[in-house]
C-alpha cells in the first residue's frame, strides 16, 4: 500500500512523446477554431461540423464597434479596430494559416502569435460591452501560456542556457499550458472560499434556485421548451439539500487541490477525470457550457491517447 502511495505521489513531470504532442496540438487548434466558427454546436453531426468549420468563419462578424465598459487591455487602449471588417477578416484568415502551421509543428512562438492575440483582443472587446463572459477565458489563458513558454524556450535555447527540465520545445509548451489550466481551478476555489466566507458548502443547498434560473435563462435565449423541465428535479433537490451539498460541495476541494494532478500522469488522469465528471454534472443540471474546459482537461491531463497506447511503458522510460 505504501509503495502504491509512493508511486502515486511521486513528482514525475510529463514528458510527452512527439506523437502525443501532435494530438494535443490538433485539439488546441480545433478549440481555437471553434471561437471563429462555433462548430461545437454541431458536435454530433460530422458533416455539419466540417461545414461549420469551412463556411461560418467567412460570415463571422464581431458586432461590437465600441467599448463602453473597458476591460483588460481595453482599459489602456482602443481595441475596437479588431472588429473592423478588413482587419477581422484578415486576422481570421491568418489565424487559419497559423493553426495549420501550429499543428504541423511550427514553434508556437510564431504559429500561435496571431491566434492568441487576435483571440485575446476579440475577447477583450466582447468583455468590454457591460457583461463579463467566462467561456473562452480558460482557452486563452492556456494558449497564452503555451505561446509565452515557446518564446521563453526559444530565448533560452538561442542563448545556450540550460532548458527547463531538459524538455524539448513541445514538452515545455504542454507543461506550461497544463499548469496554467489547473491554475484557473485553484483560483476559482479560492474565490469561492473568500466570497462565501467559507460557507460555500453550506450554501450549496440553494443550488436548485440557480439551476432553475440558468435553465429558464437558456429558454429565454432559445425558446426551446426542453429547458423548462427542471422544476421537479429542483424541488426534489430543495427537499433533500444533502444531494446538492454532496454534488456541488465536493467540487470545492477538488478545484482547490487540483494542482496535485500536476505531479504525475496517474494523478493527472484521476484529477482530470474527476473535474470532467464535475463539469459534466454541472452542465446537465445548470445548462452551462463547459466544452472548452472538458476538452482542455482531456487534452492536458487525461491524455487518453497515451493510456490507450500499448507501448506507453517503454516510452515512459525514455
Amino acid at each position: 500500500m505504501k509503495r502504491l502511495l509512493d508511486v502515486l505521489w511521486r513528482w514525475e513531470p510529463m514528458a510527452h512523446s512527439r506523437w502525443e504532442l501532435v494530438f494535443m496540438r490538433v485539439m488546441v487548434a480545433l478549440l481555437i477554431w471553434d471561437t471563429h466558427s462555433a462548430w461545437v454546436n454541431q458536435l454530433w453531426d460530422p458533416v455539419a461540423v466540417i461545414k461549420a468549420m469551412a463556411e461560418r468563419p467567412f460570415a463571422w462578424d464581431i458586432p461590437f464597434t465600441a467599448q463602453p465598459h473597458p476591460n483588460g487591455l481595453a482599459m489602456w487602449m482602443d481595441v475596437t479596430w479588431v472588429s473592423t471588417a478588413a482587419v477581422e477578416q484578415t486576422l481570421r484568415a491568418l489565424t487559419f494559416v497559423s493553426l495549420i502551421a501550429y499543428v504541423a509543428g511550427v514553434s508556437a512562438a510564431w504559429s500561435l502569435a496571431i491566434p492568441v492575440w487576435f483571440g485575446i483582443l476579440a475577447g477583450t472587446l466582447s468583455n468590454s460591452q457591460g457583461a463579463i463572459g467566462h467561456m473562452t477565458q480558460g482557452l486563452h489563458q492556456v494558449t497564452l501560456g503555451i505561446w509565452m513558454a515557446s518564446v521563453w524556450w526559444a530565448l533560452r535555447s538561442r542563448k545556450g542556457l540550460p532548458l527547463w527540465r531538459g524538455f524539448n520545445r513541445g514538452q515545455c509548451e504542454a507543461e506550461v499550458g497544463r499548469q496554467v489550466l489547473i491554475g484557473g481551478y485553484v483560483v476559482s476555489a479560492v474565490s469561492k472560499l473568500i466570497e462565501s466566507k467559507a460557507l460555500w458548502f453550506v450554501n450549496a443547498r440553494y443550488v436548485p434556485l440557480h439551476m432553475l434560473k440558468n435553465n429558464e435563462m437558456k429558454y429565454a435565449q432559445s425558446l426551446d421548451p426542453a429547458f423548462l423541465q427542471m422544476e421537479g428535479l429542483s424541488r426534489l433537490m430543495l427537499d433533500h439539500p444533502v444531494i446538492c451539498q454532496l454534488l456541488f460541495g465536493v467540487g470545492l476541494p477538488l478545484e482547490l487541490f487540483a494542482f496535485v494532478g500536476l505531479r504525475n500522469r496517474k494523478l493527472a488522469v484521476i484529477i482530470g477525470a474527476l473535474l470532467i465528471f464535475f463539469h459534466w454534472s454541472v452542465m446537465q443540471l445548470m445548462s452551462l457550457f463547459f466544452f472548452f474546459n472538458i476538452t482542455l482537461l482531456l487534452t492536458f491531463l487525461v491524455c487518453p491517447w497515451w493510456w490507450l497506447n500499448p507501448r506507453r511503458t517503454a516510452q515512459e522510460a525514455t
Partner: peptide, 28 residues
C-alpha cells in the same frame, strides 16, 4: 474598477462563488 478581478483573459472566476436564497434573470 467596474469588475474587480477581471482582466481578460484573466479572471478570479467570481461566478457561483456564493449561492444565495434569491436570484433573478431577465427575458425580452
Amino acid at each position: 474598477t467596474e469588475k474587480p478581478g477581471e482582466f481578460y483573459p484573466f479572471s478570479n472566476y467570481p461566478m457561483y462563488d456564493s449561492f444565495e436564497p434569491a436570484t433573478y434573470y431577465v427575458k425580452v
